[in-house]
């Protein structure tokens, strides 16, 4: 599945804009090739297929992201964990029923960054069946990379990779970019706007992919320690930060903080918006 991406920029000519655009497309595709878990030749696939067998030496850029993932795991008390994709084997969010406790528990031995042996530049998943994925980092990283490229060239741009948004600078005349907010309630509810001058916005939300059983909502953001979504958590969390990677991590962790989500984000002084 794909999602819609969009870059708006101010340029002196449409040729230079087109050149800049092509450069960004190449960058996004390069990142996708590098980290996609769907591609047989990606480094992520290689790491996962070597689980329980042998360590894999990774490139500098992947090492950088693994370092970041390790920090995120540590700073979130284990709530942000790139090994939690294993729970996909238990949860099917296109169905209308939740998995049994046994099915979820069966995944637990395969989840946990603390089990991973990460000694730059070598990574080793010690148990066969363990896997990592950059699903919660890759798109955000790509949006930031595109922003970096455009900033290097001095462009004023707004990047939107499927909802991960970066504004490189205010529009000419110190005007903000207007970020439309569509409420989860689709077409019917009042929608609002966020004036964004510069910075990155990422959203984590579960109302599009969730299972509802007896009025209880089970979102697709799962607690890596239990394999279950947070009870009484927000329906979506949006955070603004200096880059998308950081904003996305904070939004995902907040989703798992349950009722504490808002307080946790406010305590760090972030600009945030929650839908319950």
């Amino acid at each position: 599945m794909s999602c819609r991406n969009e870059i708006q920029l101010f340029s002196d000519s449409s040729e230079t804009a087109q050149a800049a655009f092509e450069e960004t497309v190449e960058e996004v595709q390069r990142i996708e090739l590098l980290w996609s878990r769907y591609r047989p030749d990606s480094i992520v696939t290689c790491i996962n297929e070597s689980a329980g067998r042998k360590p894999v030496v990774v490139d500098e850029e992947t090492a950088g992201l693994l370092d970041y993932a390790a920090t995120a795991w540590r700073e979130s008390d284990g709530l942000f964990d790139i090994t939690s994709g294993v729970f996909r084997r238990a949860w099917n969010f296109s169905s209308d029923h939740i998995p049994t406790k046994e099915t979820v528990n069966a995944c637990l031995p395969l989840v946990g960054w603390d089990k991973v042996v990460w000694q730059r530049p070598e990574i080793y998943l010690p148990v066969s069946g363990m896997e990592i994925d950059f699903g919660g980092l890759g798109k955000e990283y790509a949006a930031d990379r595109v922003a970096s490229l455009l900033v290097e060239h001095g462009w004023i741009a707004l990047i939107n990779l499927g909802g991960d948004i970066v504004a490189s600078a205010p529009r000419p005349g110190d005007e903000p970019w207007q970020i439309g907010i569509r409420n989860p309630d689709a077409a019917s509810r009042l929608s609002g706007h966020l004036p964004l001058y510069s910075g990155a916005l990422a959203t984590s939300g579960d109302y599009e992919r969730c299972i509802e059983v007896n009025g209880q909502r089970y979102g697709h953001i799962l607690n890596p320690r239990s394999g279950w979504p947070a009870a009484d958590g927000p329906a979506s969390v949006s955070v603004i930060a200096q880059n998308c990677l950081l904003a996305g991590t904070l939004a995902t962790v907040a989703m798992l903080k349950g009722v504490e989500a808002k307080r946790w984000l406010d305590s760090m002084g972030t600009v945030n918006h929650l839908v319950w």
């Binding site: 850029e61 950088g64 992201l65 370092d67 970041y68 920090t71 995120a72 540590r74 700073e75 979130s76 990283y141 930031d144 990379r145 922003a147 970096s148 900033v151 970066v166 504004a167 490189s168 205010p170 903000p176 907010i181 009042l190 609002g192 706007h193 966020l194 004036p195 964004l196 001058y197 510069s198 910075g199 990155a200 603004i240 930060a241 200096q242 880059n243 990677l245 950081l246 991590t249 904070l250 946790w264 305590s267 760090m268 002084g269 972030t270 600009v271 918006h273």
Partner: peptide, 30 residues
């Protein structure tokens, strides 16, 4: 709590990414 933010920001800063000043207005719903 702020230390978590600083640690994450520092880890992100090690990557080849820009760090942009955060400047946003209030969410307008009314």
């Amino acid at each position: 709590m702020r230390s978590a933010l600083h640690a994450l920001a520092a880890a992100a800063a090690a990557l080849p990414l820009v760090s942009l000043p955060v400047r946003a207005g209030q969410i307008e719903e009314a």
